[in-house]
Simulated assay, not measured.
Amino acid sequence: MISIKTKNELDLMRKAGEVVALAHKKVEESIKPGVTTLELDRIVEEVIRKSGAIPSFKGYKCPYPGGIDYPSSICASVNNEVVHGIPGLRELKDGDIISIDIGAYLNGFHGDAARTFAVGKISPEAEKLIEATKQSFFEGIKNAVEGNRIIDISSAIEDYIASNGYTVVREYVGHGIGREMHEEPQIPNYRSRERGPRLQHGMTLAVEPMVNEGTYRVELLKNKWTVVTADGMLSAHYENTIAVTENEPVILTILD
């Protein structure tokens, strides 16, 4: 069942989204060669908790048998890691790219956003991948208006990515969000057979293109969380929580 949010609920979601945006700002300031992904995790958790919120990801139940509950406040996915990279003692190197996914729970609602950052000086190819992934999000949400369907968002994302010579991941998709981190509907970043529900004012969605430099195929590592590209090539990720309105969508995970 799709949850339609009231104005008051949207205001509360915006506050959760602001916490996520603040955490991303702090991450962007902190990313440099030599920093570990565990240090970035600690920085984000401090921002979230000082804001009176709770990290949405920490303790999240693994969807696969034998996997542990998620141990960290962020997902930190480096280079060929697509999503759900677990922070640790890995030091970032000049030329790396890293996707940071952050969720915060405040006043009964979640905010969720991801960004892919450059570490030091990166290659022109990596820079182009990051920018195309980000722009595909904005191309997609042009269609996130009342009366359209989910497939209108999905198709715009895939068309833009394909026109840039990349592929979109198919096994992992965007999602509804609100009182739960993952709600209905699912939001593929590609054309699927299902057109999806019609968009309504008050729907809140986490739209998140995951874009690969090579094949769209991915593999799940033994930790049951981290997803990597099947061919070892780079991947980028960009996400915001948005609200559907009568007019253009509102992004809830950016700072005014």
Rank of each mutant, 00 (worst) to 15 (best):
M1I: 08
I2C: 01
S3K: 13
E9W: 15
E9Y: 15
K15C: 09
E18W: 00
A21V: 09
K25F: 10
E29Q: 10
S30G: 08
P33D: 08
R42C: 06
I43K: 10
R49S: 00
K50Y: 00
I54K: 03
P55N: 00
F57N: 02
G59D: 13
P63M: 11
G66K: 03
G67A: 13
I74C: 10
S77C: 05
N80W: 02
H84E: 11
E91N: 11
A104S: 08
L106K: 09
A113H: 06
R115F: 09
T116F: 14
V119W: 01
G120T: 13
K121N: 15
S123A: 04
S123F: 13
K128D: 12
A132R: 01
T133Y: 14
E139A: 11
K142F: 02
N143Y: 13
V145Y: 10
R149L: 09
I150P: 03
I151W: 12
I153S: 07
A156G: 09
E158F: 12
A162S: 02
E171G: 12
E171H: 14
H175M: 12
R179P: 00
E183A: 14
E184S: 15
P188A: 10
N189L: 06
Y190S: 13
R195C: 07
R198Y: 12
Q200P: 06
H201C: 07
T204P: 01
M210L: 15
N212T: 13
T215Y: 07
V218F: 00
L221K: 12
K224W: 08
W225K: 10
T226P: 02
V228G: 01
H237M: 05
T245G: 11
E246M: 04
N247M: 12
I254R: 13
L255N: 08
